[in-house]
Amino acid sequence: MNSDVAARLGRWQRHWQLAAAAAVGLWIWLYIGLGMKWPSADRGAWYLIGDPSVALGCLTALVWRRRYPLAVTLTVAVVSTASSFATGVGLLALASVSTRRRPMEIGAVTLAYLIASHFLVGSHPVESPPGSPTSFYRLVVPPLLAGIAVAAGVAVGARRVEVRTLRARAHRMEREQKARAAQAQAQERNRIAREMHDVLAHRISLIAMQAGVLNHRTNLPAHENRTLVHGIAAGSHQALEELRDVLGVLRAGPPHSELTQPSLHGIPDLVADARTSGLHVALTTTVSGTPPDTIGRTAYRIVQEGLTNATKHAPGAHIHITLERAAGNQLHVTVSNSPALTNNPARTHPPPSGYGLRGLAERVGLAGGKLDHHPTPDNGYILTAQLPWPASTHGTDT
């Protein structure tokens, strides 16, 4: 739609320029014709027929000035000096070639126009004695008009360049804005995916483990059955509550798009919840104080992901969690587990999603830390992270 409008506007401008040049030429032609003395029939016939014919030919030639700019404008500038009706057309030719802002072309066309106007002035039917004001005007007016046409053409050319530059800049800014919007959407999708995984994966893994125990152990005492059933019900309820919180935040949108996140102080409750579900978890911490929100939240998610992976891939294993504020203003988080118990009846577990550690690596990277995970020589697994804990954080140490 915009290209069609621009094309119609360009055609209208070209037609308007030609019409304006013809109007200027017509005014000059009528002014000279009304004020001159007709010396002979031949000169009068030339003025009435030949002069407008030359102007019409020059006006027609200007239609192709954009395809053959130098050849057309040079020809029109020279030929137009033989016709008073073509004065406006010749000036338009000078202005047109000047819009290209090429000094060699402008100089060549202007020089040709001035030379032709000097030698072809006799073709006009108006004659004045030497030394009269009319002769003076013939020497001054052509350079003056040529200078005005060249100045106008250069100004129009500069304006066109400026408009093209602004248009290109606007298009570039539009593309950059779309790229930034796409990047922001991708980042937001990744953030939502991380939050959904962190909220659901841990709870569902514990529920799957407890359900696996109930499915494979039919000889459990009644109180252990009740404990497992209660754990499944409580875990399902908590998973639904946390999912509802996430969906509520997503639907609310800005400025209420921040979810209340757990932090470092929530890790003991996380460990206690895992123990209640039947996991063998030990927690060792030498951390005192409260880290920045981002660091505390990331540490919590690291421990949560470690427990989730141990539950899914090493059922019955002993899990050891270590929190340590090391030298160099860093928080070290380690989650290690022993090999899975091969005779554990709760071996059935949900298939791995493959997004937990990937999302965790993104989260740790955004916090400015480093993440590492690999199997241990005894067929266990270890997950470690180093997170920055700035010493300049005020009011965090106790």
Results as ranks from 00 to 15, higher is better:
11 R>A: 11
12 W>M: 01
15 H>T: 07
23 A>H: 02
26 L>W: 03
29 W>F: 07
30 L>F: 11
31 Y>P: 00
31 Y>M: 05
32 I>P: 00
38 W>C: 04
39 P>W: 10
47 Y>S: 02
48 L>C: 09
49 I>P: 01
52 P>G: 06
59 L>N: 03
60 T>K: 03
60 T>Q: 08
71 A>I: 11
75 T>M: 03
75 T>Y: 00
79 V>Q: 00
79 V>M: 00
80 S>C: 03
84 S>I: 08
85 F>G: 02
87 T>F: 01
96 S>C: 09
98 S>P: 12
99 T>C: 10
101 R>Q: 12
110 T>A: 15
111 L>T: 15
114 L>Q: 12
116 A>V: 09
125 P>V: 12
127 E>Y: 14
127 E>F: 11
130 P>N: 10
130 P>W: 04
132 S>Y: 05
134 T>N: 12
139 L>V: 14
144 L>C: 14
144 L>W: 07
148 I>F: 14
157 G>H: 07
157 G>V: 04
159 R>G: 13
160 R>G: 15
166 L>S: 11
169 R>L: 05
176 E>G: 08
182 A>Q: 13
185 Q>Y: 03
189 R>C: 07
190 N>V: 07
201 A>W: 00
204 I>W: 09
210 Q>W: 07
211 A>F: 05
212 G>Y: 10
216 H>W: 11
218 T>L: 13
223 H>P: 01
225 N>G: 08
226 R>H: 05
233 A>P: 01
235 G>Y: 05
241 E>I: 10
243 L>P: 02
246 V>P: 07
248 G>Y: 06
251 R>M: 10
253 G>I: 09
254 P>Y: 14
255 P>S: 05
255 P>L: 09
270 L>G: 09
273 D>A: 06
273 D>G: 01
277 S>G: 12
277 S>H: 13
277 S>F: 04
285 T>K: 10
287 V>I: 15
289 G>N: 08
289 G>R: 08
290 T>E: 14
294 T>L: 08
295 I>W: 00
298 T>M: 05
300 Y>T: 06
304 Q>I: 02
305 E>H: 04
307 L>T: 06
310 A>I: 09
316 G>T: 07
319 I>N: 08
319 I>G: 04
320 H>A: 13
324 E>R: 11
331 L>W: 02
332 H>M: 13
335 V>A: 12
336 S>M: 12
345 P>Q: 03
347 R>H: 08
349 H>V: 04
355 Y>I: 07
355 Y>Q: 08
357 L>Y: 06
358 R>K: 11
360 L>A: 06
365 G>C: 00
366 L>Q: 10
367 A>P: 00
368 G>T: 05
370 K>W: 04
371 L>P: 02
372 D>K: 01
373 H>Y: 12
377 P>E: 02
379 N>G: 03
379 N>D: 15
381 Y>T: 01
385 A>W: 03
387 L>D: 00
388 P>S: 02
389 W>A: 01
390 P>M: 06
391 A>T: 03
396 T>Y: 00
